[in-house]
Amino acid sequence: MTPAGGTIAHRVDAAAREATPAVLTLVLILLDVVPLRLPEFAVITPSFALMSVYYWTMYRAELMPAPVVLALGVFQDIVGGGPLGVGAFVLLATHGAVLTQRRVLMRRPFAVGWVGFVGVALAAFTLTWVIMAVLHLALFNPLAAGMQYVMTVALYPPVAWLLLAVHRSWVQAR
């Protein structure tokens, strides 16, 4: 919610704060793509995008609206080289699922938010696997996807902590 009126500088400042969740997610998507060259890491790159969309939808849903999620998903699909629309669909579905549950989870301690992510991410990874199987008419090795899921869930706390720091110090600061 932007305060009505104010100077141009004030408005630019507010806009920058409001754009932060989307921009941050964009950067995280790029980080997903950068080759880290750790043994086996290529297969188990965690999905930072999923963490970010979950976090912002949960705690600042108005700054992570559905059209932005769609755009981020398409960006992720294109930069990652995957089939177009799959990441977008899954991120949107995640966004929708979190919206229905956020009133239950939002005010709870951080651990509850993590447990929520464990469930939501499981659904998201399963959905991705099913869509990919249908698109390619092939059953993918569930182990690789499973490893990626475990990695994503395990790395959620530190990433969420970073997002929380940005959230408190910059997005929320008045």
């Binding site: 398409v74 699909d77 294109i78 089939p83 177009l84 629309g85 799959v86 977008a88 949107l92």
Partner: peptide
């Protein structure tokens, strides 16, 4: 709106599957 966006994403999947020139153009530019 949400369902419409979800349908858009599904539509993109079909569009991508069809391997059109325009999709490739957009991919490459981006």
């Amino acid at each position: 709106t949400f369902l419409l966006l979800l349908a858009t994403a599904a539509g993109l999947m079909l569009l991508g599957k069809a391997d059109t020139v325009i999709v490739e153009r957009i991919r490459v530019e981006m």
